[in-house]
Structure formats: structure tokens, C-alpha cells
Simulated scan of single mutants.
Amino acid sequence: MTAGNTGTKIAIVTGGSRGLGRNTVINLARRGVNSLFTYRANRAEADKVVSLVAEAGQKAIALPLDTGKVNTFDAFVEQVRKSLPELGAERFDFLVNNAGTSNHTPFEQTTEEELDGLYNVHFKGVFFLTQKLLPLINDGGRIVNISSGLTRVAFPGSGSYASMKGAVEVLTRYLAKELGPRKIAVNTVAPGAVATDFSGGMVRDNPEINRRVAEATALGRAGVPDDIGPMIASLLSEDNRWVNAQRIEVAGGMVI
């Protein structure tokens, strides 16, 4: 899928045991891509993803990682280095910075601890994990940073979360510029409201919220993981090799 490298491609996906990350890993497998993905605590769910990837004819390795703890990244990168040969390579091709936490605290009530937690996972973690993995990513590889439709449309209570995602969108453009000499393309994917367990399953499990999302969306429904994972897998493919430094919203036309 990447020019100049004809072997099986390898992706690293953070937060790959659930939600959009899980769907991305599975859809990459369907396109012939092996994955090394992270999970924070639920090993059982991670093992299920490994099995689903195997059913699709590919290989996946699950490694534990809290993306908010930068001081663990050196050890994690060493684990990645040791694990890659199990997937048939010394380096990898694609990085999807997906892992995240939600927050819906109104601005006036947001604590320093809450803001620091969001910063550590959504910006600092993305920044330094990407930096530390750069020596292992192939030239001509691709990076996708996951943002949110909330950077474009303001919903009260989401300001702290959306601000961190906004920072990631700016970082994406700078990475695209600075990694250009290595032919590494970097893009942002910004999902709209998706029915997963994110935010406590709010869109998936609350009929009123789901209805309001559907009414605000041109295509008339809330998103589902299968709307997002295939898109990310496609963006990483050779079909989209000339897409770079872009923010692509995948939201069915929400609030337009």
C-alpha cells in the first residue's frame, strides 16, 4: 500500500481494543494490513480483536499502554521494536493516534486535574508518542490523528476536550510539513457523533441524544463505527497517497 514497499503493511493503532480503534484495526486487516494496537486495561477485549483479525487472515499484537503517561513511552517503543518481527518486519508503515477519553464538564466547573488529564492523553501523548515512534516508521508511511467534529461546532461542556483536539489538528499540519522530506503523509480524521461506548455510550444508549444527533445530520442518523474504520483504512491506502495535511470530517453532514 505504500510506494516502494511491497510487503505486508503494518499499522500501529492506539486504543484499538474498543470503539473506533477496534473497527479500524479490523478494517485494516480486511485490506491485508497487520496491526500492533494498544489497550489501556481490558485485556479480554483486546484478545477478541486479535481473534477477529486472525479470522480476517491477518496478524495483530495487543500491547498495554496508557497514552497519558509519557514516561512509559520509551519502554513501550522498545516493546514495539521487539514485537514487529512477529508481524514480519523491523519497521511499521501507519500510525493511527486514536486513544482518547471524553469530558463534558462546563467551562466554569472544569478543574485543573481534568484539563491536565485531557492534555496528557489528547495532545502531549499524541505529540511524544509520534515523536518516539518516528525512527521506526518507514519513509513513505502515513499518520492519522483522530480529532472531533467538536472542533468545528461548539457544544457547551465540550470546550476542554475540543481545545485539545484543535491543538492536534494544528500539529497535524506541522507534522505534514516537517515529515514531508520522508514522504510521510499526515492527516486528521474528525468523526461526528458515533454510537460507541465513548462518553459512557451516550449516543449509542440514550435514545433522546441519538434522536437529536440524527435530526442534526443531513443523512438522518447518528454515526456507527463502520462509518469510520473503513474510511481510515481507505485513507491509509495507496488510493489516497496524495491526500496530506487535511482535516477530513466524517459525520454524515452533521450541523451544516
Rank of each mutant, 00 (worst) to 15 (best):
T110H: 01
V121Q: 05
R173S: 03
L235W: 02
A29E: 07
I26F: 01
G201P: 14
R30H: 14
A245I: 13
Q246T: 12
T111I: 02
Q109M: 02
N27W: 00
F92C: 03
Q79E: 15
T110P: 00
A60I: 04
Q58P: 00
R43P: 11
L133S: 10
L87V: 14
E108Q: 00
V168Q: 04
P181A: 02
S160Y: 00
A46Y: 08
V126D: 04
P181N: 06
K9E: 14
Q58G: 06
D47P: 11
S148C: 09
A3Y: 15
T217E: 04
T67A: 11
V50L: 11
R31T: 08
I146L: 14
L171I: 01
L133F: 06
M231A: 07
R212D: 07
A29S: 07
V255Q: 15
V49R: 12
G166T: 01
G180Q: 05
R40N: 14
P181R: 01
N210T: 06
G220W: 10
L20A: 04
A75N: 14
L129V: 12
I184R: 00
G253M: 13
H104Y: 00
G141V: 10
A162M: 01
G180R: 09
V189D: 01
F155I: 13
F92P: 09
A3M: 15
E45H: 14
F198A: 05
G253P: 15
L179A: 02
K82G: 14
P191F: 03
E78V: 14
V213W: 04
R221D: 04
I61L: 14
V121R: 04
T24R: 06
G252S: 14
S148P: 05
I26N: 09
G149P: 02
A193P: 10
K183H: 06
N244E: 10
V186G: 05
Q246G: 07
N210A: 14
K183V: 00
T72I: 09
L150D: 14
L36T: 08
F155W: 04
L65I: 10
E45I: 13
Q246K: 12
L118G: 05
A214L: 05
I232W: 01
V25Y: 12
R30W: 07
V213H: 06
R91D: 11
G4F: 11
V144R: 13
L20Q: 05
T14A: 12
Y119F: 13
A89K: 13
V170L: 02
E108F: 00
E55D: 15
I143K: 09
V49L: 09
Y119R: 03
S234K: 02
A54Y: 08
T67M: 12
S234P: 00
A245W: 10
F198Q: 07
S17P: 08
V50M: 11
V168G: 03
E114D: 04
E78H: 14
S158W: 08
S158Y: 07
R211H: 12
N42F: 13
